[in-house]
Nucleic acid binder design. Structure first.
Length: 499
RNA sequence: GGUCGGGUGGCCGAGCGGUUAGGCAGAGGUCUGCAAAACCUUGUACGGCAGUUCGAAUCUGCUCCCGACCUCCA
């Protein structure tokens, strides 16, 4: 197995990835809070972890990938009296909270499918794990790192920080600074310190989602569900924990604290964080409206974009940036990605059709190809560097295309090398990067029929061309073009493909 | 205000001590009835100012911008 290097947010450096159990990887990623449609920023994060999941599997690891659905406890606003996001939405839409949850969970799953993001191994919901969460609250209380106040339970951050000395390690926060926050929080009354946070909250009568507990009828705190569910399915100590950069603090920091307080050990060895998707140079965010939806991208109906872009173009666009860098979305960048994506897919489609035959081989090119293939996997193994891996693939494209033209000096590639190349493109593009060839005629039933018709039309056009009837030849091409079918007259005959 | 990250050629985006990253756009050429595609050739950029070094986009200091987190967000 190739050595894999990952950037660990905990150490702020790249480390060699060594799983706790040989050959097995446990990975937990914070999923969405299902109170509204997913937006592109979420999608980028889940797509990044999708590639990570796919690559780990490619390397031969058996991966248990847990990605939760948060459907309770996430509050609006910055103080503990804020409304639950789901409950608020339920009121607005006149639905049962669970209907809201189902609606947006369905929407989320649809979007994951559209972007070819694989389902995780387990997708647990917070509301399905209330008992586990109550047990964890109890453990934290038993260990003295929480206190009950008026039916709610708060995590005693200061005590935890003093005794364990690890609080703030992930996010670089210093407890003293947090305590000195002068921000004017309305509901500080029950908390001993500003840095404390609720792990169980007493619900008022009007609250829609609430459960019985030893402390009150209420609901779990936002950070708790991840601690409880990761522990339940991956154990107290697992390999990778991931999420968006904006979750580092307070969410992940508090998650770590909860885990340590309940079972005495840090939950994950490696913390991976994806960076933000930007638009207009600013974070794309649900709450401030600086956003574009996936549907708007697909339809082109947005002032930020001048034409529609397909899901795979968007996926490719995101793959061209490293997951730890911010990525600025713009029409121009999308346009460039679309061209590049098509070029790569066309080269691949041609490559996969090459019949291997033994012929005189060119040692220099053989070496170059093998080296580039090797480098492609090196890049992926270096903290999942998809942009660099794609760059190597793009360097292979001219070699592939020159084979098409049967130019002097190229084309003399041995069968095993061609097979290696075919395998590399297939694995990297589809299995690892999760792309799909949108140009490929996907419906096998209609393919035969359309292909037959196209062969006939191309034949007719060839006759016209042979008779130098350029008018007819061009008309056929123009009409087909209007139907989004592109005709290309190559040296080896005419080919066609759907635009 | 505190903490952290970033400023790379027309655009996107890698790299982080010595190499052409790559994509898109642009220019010239080959091919072609014309086109498209493909192929070949072409661009010497790293916010600014000092410094370290044989050598810096890459390290250090200062400085100017921008962003993220600190409050719900992937």
């Amino acid at each position: 197995m190739r050595d894999l290097t990952v950037y660990n947010s905990l150490s702020k450096s790249k480390e060699t990835f060594i799983p706790i159990h040989k050959g097995l990887v446990g990975m937990y990623v914070c999923g969405p809070t299902v109170y509204s449609d997913v937006h592109l920023g979420n999608i980028r994060t889940f797509m990044s972890f999708d590639v990570i999941f796919r690559y780990l599997k490619f390397l031969g690891y058996k991966v248990r990938y847990v990605r939760n659905i948060t459907d309770v406890g996430h509050l609006v606003g910055d103080e503990d009296e804020g409304e639950d996001k789901i409950a608020k939405r339920a009121k607005v839409e006149g639905l049962e909270p669970m209907e809201v949850v189902q609606k947006y969970t369905n929407g989320f799953h649809d979007m994951m499918r559209i972007f070819n993001i694989l389902s995780p191994s387990i997708e647990p919901r917070a509301t399905g794990h209330i008992i586990d969460q109550i047990e964890m609250v109890q453990q934290i209380l038993d260990h003295g790192f929480a206190y009950v106040a008026n039916g709610s339970v708060y995590f005693d951050t200061l005590k935890f920080a003093k005794e364990k000395g690890t609080y703030g390690k992930l996010s670089g926060r210093i407890i003293e600074d947090l305590l000195q926050e002068t921000r004017d929080l309305k509901n500080q009354g029950e908390k001993r310190n500003a840095a404390d946070f609720a792990i169980w909250m007493k619900a008022d009568d009007r609250h829609l989602m609430k459960w019985n507990s030893p402390w009150s009828v209420g609901f779990p705190g936002w950070h708790l569900e991840c601690s409880a569910m990761s522990t339940k399915y991956l154990g107290a100590h697992f390999d990778i924990h991931g999420g968006g950069n904006d979750l580092k603090f307070p969410h992940h920091e508090n998650e770590i604290a909860q885990n340590e307080a309940s079972c005495g050990c840090a939950p994950a060895n490696y913390w991976l964080h994806t960076n933000m998707l930007l638009m207009n140079g600013r974070k794309m965010s649900k709450s401030d409206g600086n956003t574009i939806t996936a549907e708007e991208l697909f339809s082109g109906h947005s002032r930020h974009v001048e034409k529609p872009y397909s899901p795979m173009v968007v996926r490719f666009f995101m793959l061209q940036a490293h997951y730890r860098s911010t990525l600025d979305l713009s029409n121009e960048a999308l346009l460039a990605a679309e061209k590049g994506y098509k070029k790569l897919m066309e080269a691949n489609a041609f490559l996969q059709k090459i019949k291997t035959e033994d012929s005189e081989k060119n040692a220099a090119i053989e070496t170059k190809i093998i080296q580039l293939i090797d480098e492609t996997f090196d890049e992926l193994s270096d903290d999942f560097n998809t942009p660099k891996a794609l760059a190597r693939l793009f360097e292979l494209v001219p070699i592939i295309n020159s084979y098409k033209d049967k130019k002097e000096g190229f084309g003399n590639i041995s069968a095993p090398t061609i097979e290696l190349l075919q395998d590399c493109f297939d694995k990297v593009l589809f299995e690892i990067m999760g792309l799909r060839d949108e140009n490929a005629r996907s419906d096998p039933g209609s393919e035969g029929a359309l292909d037959g018709v196209m062969q006939f039309i191309i034949e007719l056009r060839q006759e016209a061309r042979a008779n130098k009837d350029w008018g007819t030849a061009d008309k056929i091409r123009d009409v087909l073009q209007a139907q989004n079918i592109v005709i290309k007259d190559g040296k080896e005959g005419t080919t066609w493909n759907l635009k």
